[in-house]
Amino acid sequence: MNTHLSPALQTPLEHEIATHLVEALQLEMTSEEIDPQAPLFGEGLGLDSIDALEISLIASRHYGVQLRSDDEHNREIFHSLRSLSAYIAAHRQAA
């Protein structure tokens, strides 16, 4: 049984975060076009370290999640929209 979502399907939280990313990073795509499993950096969306800072601000501002530059898990956290969303879901502050 295949329990993994197809690349085209985003969870509601992934869609919400993708919308913030498109707006804040001024990406030339819609939030729906972001494959939740594609890498955010390098060959995926092609984001860079400045974009990582903006993503950290989004996480803090909208979800109360602090992402630290010295976190040893950043590579996994920032790997994809799906991994970033999972981290935020696990660590977000109740509104």
Rank of each mutant, 00 (worst) to 15 (best):
E33P: 07
A94E: 11
L45C: 05
R68G: 04
H91M: 06
E23Y: 12
M1R: 02
V22L: 07
H73Y: 08
H4N: 02
Q66H: 00
Y63D: 02
S80R: 04
L47E: 12
D51A: 15
L81W: 01
H4M: 09
P7Y: 07
E32M: 12
L5P: 02
G64K: 05
A18T: 00
E28G: 07
G64F: 04
T11C: 10
T11E: 15
T3N: 10
L67S: 11
P7V: 10
E43P: 09
E76T: 06
Q26F: 01
Q66G: 00
A59I: 14
L25A: 14
F78E: 03
H91Q: 11
L21V: 07
H62L: 02
A38F: 01
R92G: 01
G46K: 13
E23K: 05
E28V: 01
T19N: 03
E76P: 01
R61V: 08
N74V: 04
L57Y: 08
A38Q: 15
E54K: 10
I50P: 09
E43L: 09
L9G: 01
D71S: 15
H4C: 05
P36Q: 12
Q10D: 07
M29A: 10
H79T: 03
P12K: 00
E54F: 01
H62S: 13
P36M: 06
G46M: 04
I50M: 13
